[in-house]
Design a protein around this nucleic acid. Structure first.
Lengths: 338, 338
DNA sequence: GCTGGCACTCTGCTGCGGTGAGTGCCAGAC
DNA sequence: GTCTGGCACTCACCGCAGCAGAGTGCCAGC
């Protein structure tokens, strides 16, 4: 077990390295932090910390930098989330309140998060799986062509074309629309399949094919849209990565363009509470030199989607975590109100 | 006026520099291109070209690189768009045909363009201004709260909440829905305002306020959504910028995040035909070391939006222009079919 | 008007010693 | 035992000089 002071030394190393982006030596440490011991003692502690794999030397006779494992310990044990100040909180709220629709909410959230953390922000659109259907609309585009529109309580709208096997009359359409809505409006997304299961039977034989097609499309929309969309922003902050950024930036940009990768990334995070993935803890190789801080957010008590930031492992964890948590909280509020 | 051979020398310089990314000297030029003259002669020509501002030397005793003005001349006079090969065209078509909805079309277009040109791709969503209204839908969310959904012929869906000054009955709602659609369905976006102008008068006094509110929201949607959305992709290609990329990439990334900047960029381009903006020809400072190749695309004969790529001024203009043109053409086809 | 030749100018590379931050280790003090 | 001061050592970084090579401008001759 590491002594209290050695942990203190690790904390100091992390803080200094995050600030200066340069390997930190024993002398500099004792000067900037009042550890109450001499550089020589700190050197001994450092040797021990290195032995345990928490810090490393880029080369002999250079200072130490934290390893992924060191950051992990720092995040888990040596620090706590730094709360936002009151003015910051007010600014967040004000900024988000101006949003006019869902796209705007997500867009503002991304920009806000990128600006607060000075890192790349990723915001998942509120999920359909857990939200409820507010309304289903059916429109006739042509005799045998319909448009299906699904509106959710988070304000999201999805539409699909439906090609009918046979022409479908206006009255049957109105009928189907009414029945569909009476069954699914206000219901959980995941409950919809069984709620509409027997609908075709109540229609005339000629129309059953069309009804079945519409339902199939509806269910398909649910499934397809469960795979979420997301928005990213603040990629210009990647240039703040450090001196080795030319090497690192490319795989990161590539990963950020792959929605699938990002969704998996957020998906792997815990459903409740904040998740911090440091360096090689990220499954995706391109993100091995980044850390991802993510958290769920939702309109009610429940999380419906996730948001987070991607930055260098050398990041200000307490501050970043504070910003991420605060933003998630306020987005949840905004969504609940709208 | 520059002699034919001097233009030929300029063309050779541009081609070589684009290929090698290194200043090109007189000897290398004569070796790689059969100009039929000696290096000494080429040197004289180069001196003349430099005098006119078409090429420049990074420093004395280095080769020459084209200036923005040189690229301009190259694009205008010395080359032509390189058409896609048949297999390429087929691949483009196949890839785009798999799209299921508008978002998917735009998404695929961006990815395709980024991949073909190995540069950053920008695709504007089809504009509402020129497209027509396919359907307007009104839904009752609460006694005094409606949802307005506008569907366009390009498959785009916009929705807005409407808070009514007074409760609005279902029958009045159905009435308004029917009348609205009979007037605006299939009509040009820009014609809508005058088509609905007198609608409130035909309703009962109690409902006129609500009708007016709905119409106001509808018109607002038109105006607001004339400011387009767009999608970008292939930002990882920015790392192909060259050795000075660490300096250049930041302002470019920043510019790319500003939708306003990009929209202005595309907006400035000619409505018909391809537009190439080279280096300082771009109004936005952050893009001074990039070139933008853009072109309009549309579902009919008419352009409804624009797409293009952003890359280093040192780009393969003929190939890029060919890819941009081909993609625009096929997207137009896909949109017309759907 | 083109060419070959020639002197000149730079950049980029390499090798070299000096500097300084940082380390590990050890003997001694508390 | 634990901490401390001292000391020798290592190694990245910096500035400098020298060299090679690519490229140029100019000029005389064809």
């Amino acid at each position: 077990m590491l002594s209290e002071r050695r942990l203190e030394v690790l904390r100091a190393i992390v803080q200094d390295y995050v600030g200066t982006e340069e390997p930190v030596g024993s002398k500099a440490l004792t000067e900037r932090h009042h550890l109450g011991v001499s550089p020589a003692t700190v050197r001994n502690d450092m040797a021990a910390l290195e032995e345990e794999g928490f810090i490393a030397q880029p080369h002999t006779s250079a200072g130490r930098i934290p390893t992924d494992k060191g950051y992990r310990l720092f995040v888990d044990k040596l620090t706590s989330v730094k709360p936002m100040t009151a003015p910051e909180r007010r600014a967040i709220q004000n900024f988000l309140e101006g949003a006019v629709d869902l796209d705007d909410v997500v867009g503002r959230t991304v920009r806000l998060l990128a600006q607060l953390t000075r890192q790349v922000a990723v915001v998942q659109y509120p999920s359909l799986t857990r939200s409820t259907v507010r309304h289903v609309e059916l429109l006739s585009l042509a005799p045998a062509r319909l448009m299906l529109v699904v509106i959710t309580d988070t304000g999201r709208v999805e539409q699909r074309h439906v090609d009918c096997p046979a022409p479908f009359g206006e009255s049957a359409l109105a009928d189907l629309r009414a029945r569909l809505n009476s069954r699914v409006a206000g219901r959980r997304f995941s409950d919809v399949p069984q709620l509409v299961q027997d609908l075709p039977e109540s229609f005339e034989a000629d129309d059953r094919g069309t009804v079945a097609t519409v339902l199939a499309t509806l269910l398909e929309t649910l499934v397809e849209e469960t795979e979420e969309r997301l928005m990213i922003g603040g990629t210009a902050n990647l240039t703040r990565f450090g001196h080795d950024f030319p090497l690192v930036i490319r795989p990161v940009l590539e990963a950020l363009e792959e929605q699938v990768v990002l969704l998996k990334l957020l998906g792997e995070a815990k459903d409740s509470g904040m998740t911090v993935r440091i360096g090689h803890e990220n499954a995706h190789e391109g993100l091995n030199s980044t850390s991802v801080v993510s958290v769920g957010y939702g309109s009610g008590g429940e999380a419906v989607a996730k948001l987070g930031v991607v930055g260098p492992t050398r990041m200000d964890y307490p501050g970043t975590m504070g910003a991420v948590r605060a933003v998630a909280r306020y987005v949840g509020q905004i969504l609940a109100e709208s």
